[in-house]
Design a binder for these strands. Structure first.
Lengths: 243, 243
DNA sequence: CGCTGCCTTGATCTTCTTCAAAACGTGTGG
DNA sequence: CCACACGTTTTGAAGAAGATCAAGGCAGCG
């Protein structure tokens, strides 16, 4: 019964071929930041962005680099992370299409506080932070949307803080899985497959625990029929029992 | 040498008598949200706010209540908290003048995710979330400022996540103290007194640890001359050695 | 002056980390 | 296509860190 899947079933999202041409326009219009804009404004904004493709594993921004750009994920998955005092990985967040990273508007510290790495093949739209700030100031609709995006992100972050405070490795892993399933879930064989390649180490780094502990917990959940998991992937079988 | 102060030296901030009249105008102008506004706009904004005073211990918003208002701390200290699965306290943040709480703009979930309680005598300016949203949309400068405020808060929240992930009770307490000292520090007897009344339980709840563990750690820090502490208060003597 | 609640300290126990080794998947090159 | 080698995952056992239980001390207050 415990047929551990031998192959991580998960489509390595491949943006057809980067995100060039006017596909960008559509992406921008769908991005939370610019959803309210009229056609003309979209064009104005579009002109200010450039798109960059990254192969899996490539660093997009690096902790400590001067914080000069704002990026928006157009396609693929980006991991936001850094390293704790003792060199241990901390995975702060996993980003999908529409999510932003980097410096919002030239506010705050002048260097990035975290690194961003492409997990998939990623296409990211990027803009100079000061240029974005000018856009904010000249097109009010963008600023209003930015407020919405940020307050949502802040709420999620508070939720994460709350959960990390409720110490207990198992419930933290459960929370991480629930969150990932909501954000990146794809229906697959009567389960919700988390459609992102995540190692045990990375899941552990999101829950603030150790790799081995994470592995043990996932094994137990698999035994109990709550999840299905293999090398680099997890699927949620019984969301209700994730507490 | 270990003369543990018998009286928590800390001035219980008392707003002269609430925050009425046009003192409000000044407060609004100093608040991060409205710093850029012209006189006329300040008046427009001012008219939409009302001020409410709270005695120490009073609940300002309660987790689960319909999220209809945005509040800004004008004077005093507000604690943002809720309770984990097992009924344990989680102190998400401590707010001072200029900080906001509640619903930013009618976005997000329709109930508050956390409770807010007055620690001091508090004066809070409050506005209906939908009214605030209208202000955002009609006065672009507010939206731009809101973006700045939110991105700062988000950055701080990410920093907290990072710190909670870097597991080790002592360094987490150190981080909490450093953060509080920066935000609420007042120079006192060659030390930095954290000018907020915080019990051991509350400090523990910010670091995600247990009350007793927190007490032990603070005792050790006191032994090492890093901090001075008493009932309900902590002062940092040697910030450098807080790692 | 004694009550109440916060803080401290000790002892024990649970949980998670750490160290170690084996099993398994995956991609590689023959 | 198969076998090998590498990195990930799993599992075990020992150890440490922190939680929990319990009791005593101290401050503030009626």
């Amino acid at each position: 019964m415990d047929t551990r899947r031998s192959t991580p079933v998960r489509h390595n999202t491949i943006p057809p071929e980067a995100c060039s041409t006017d596909l960008r326009r559509r992406l921008l219009r769908e991005s939370p930041f610019f959803a309210d804009l009229t056609g003309g404004d979209i064009d104005r904004v579009n002109a200010r962005f450039n798109d960059v493709g990254y192969e899996p594993g490539r660093a997009i921004i690096r902790e400590g680099d001067p914080a000069t750009r704002l990026g928006i994920v157009a396609a693929g998955v980006v991991k936001l992370f850094n390293y704790g005092d003792s060199g241990n990985l901390v995975l702060i967040d996993v980003l999908g299409p529409g999510d932003h990273f980097g410096s919002i508007a030239g506010f705050g510290p002048d260097t990035y506080q975290e690194s961003a790495q492409a997990s998939d093949l990623v296409c990211a739209l990027q803009i100079d932070a000061s240029v974005f700030r000018t856009l904010l100031e000249t097109i009010p609709a963008i600023a209003v949307r930015a407020v919405e995006v940020l307050s949502n992100r802040l709420r999620l972050s508070h939720e994460l803080v709350r959960q990390l405070g409720a110490h207990n490795a198992e419930s933290r892993v459960a929370y991480v899985l629930k969150r990932l399933a909501t954000r990146f879930g794809r229906s697959w064989e009567h389960m919700t497959l988390i459609d992102v390649s995540l190692s045990r180490e990375e899941i552990a780094a999101m829950a603030g625990i150790q790799t081995e502990t994470c592995s043990r917990i996932l094994s137990a959940m698999r035994r109990d029929g709550i999840v299905e998991a293999g090398r680099g992937w997890v699927a949620v079988r019984d969301p209700a029992r994730l507490e």
